[in-house]
Design a protein around this nucleic acid. Structure first.
Lengths: 132, 132
DNA sequence: CTAAAACCTGACGCTGACGTCAGAGACAAG
DNA sequence: CTTGTCTCTGACGTCAGCGTCAGGTTTTAG
């Protein structure tokens, strides 16, 4: 499978795939002329990388995590890193929930059938900002 | 309250505060000499902005949302935007949970007292990648 | 009144994850 | 063998959210 087809099957750009390789996240065999050839499993690999990127992880972090996920690396350091990353994500989730709940409150107010959206009610909401 | 004190009280840099103003997220009165002066409520305002930034919202999105949150804007369009943004955040939370659960699984495996971390078990995990 | 501290407006720098263009080689089809 | 499509390696462009430096003004402390 060459790079164009992998791009088509995963939905990411050719440029992105080359970038992943440059970052050490994805490897490819080369044909005589220097063209990249991927195994079928590369599709899942790319999806995994995309999922991690979507969760806000940086290339470097993904590079550190991948060996633990698929190469069976299991040292005290790797375990610590995994836990640290998980905790970071937990915090991020908490942050997002906070914002979502604020938005929900505003939505509920703005949809209240009485349209009873008084200044006071809104001010209360606004000053209810939770400080980290 | 001048910009330095606001920065100190909120923990964000002076540069960031000027940037928020440039983006239309924060307004300030000006003294004769052109210096910014903030009301006490600006502290909460900045915290709100920071919370929204931390949730991954872009300046433009925040600029669109703020009037709905504090200026009592309530049109069909504004409600739709609020719901859209909330749904986007819900999806982001789901994404993050997915990644966290994957990490948790790897952590659990690597910590299993039997250290029974065989190739087969790991491969199973890897191929369990969930596609968007 | 003066010196120090804080503030002002540009404007360029930085980082990450690619987009995009240039110029040249690789490869399947006819 | 040629044409068209795909791919290759640089290398520069982009965008957001600031950091940082320059050169000048305002405010405050003494």
């Amino acid at each position: 499978m060459r790079i164009g087809e992998l791009a088509a099957q995963t939905g990411v750009s050719v440029r992105a795939l080359r970038y992943y390789e440059e970052q050490g996240l994805l490897t490819a065999a080369r044909s005589g002329g220097g063209q990249r050839h991927y195994l079928h499993g590369a599709v899942d690999r790319v999806h995994l990388i995309q999922t991690l990127y979507a969760a806000g992880l940086a290339s470097r972090t993904i590079l550190d995590l991948l060996p633990c996920v698929d190469a069976n690396v299991n040292t005290p350091e790797s375990r610590a890193m995994l836990r640290a990353e998980r905790d970071r994500i937990d915090q991020q989730i908490a942050q997002l929930r906070q914002v979502r709940d604020r938005l929900d409150a505003v939505i509920t107010l703005s949809e209240s059938p009485a349209s009873g959206c008084t200044r006071t009610e809104v001010d209360t909401l606004v000053s209810a900002t939770v400080h980290h």
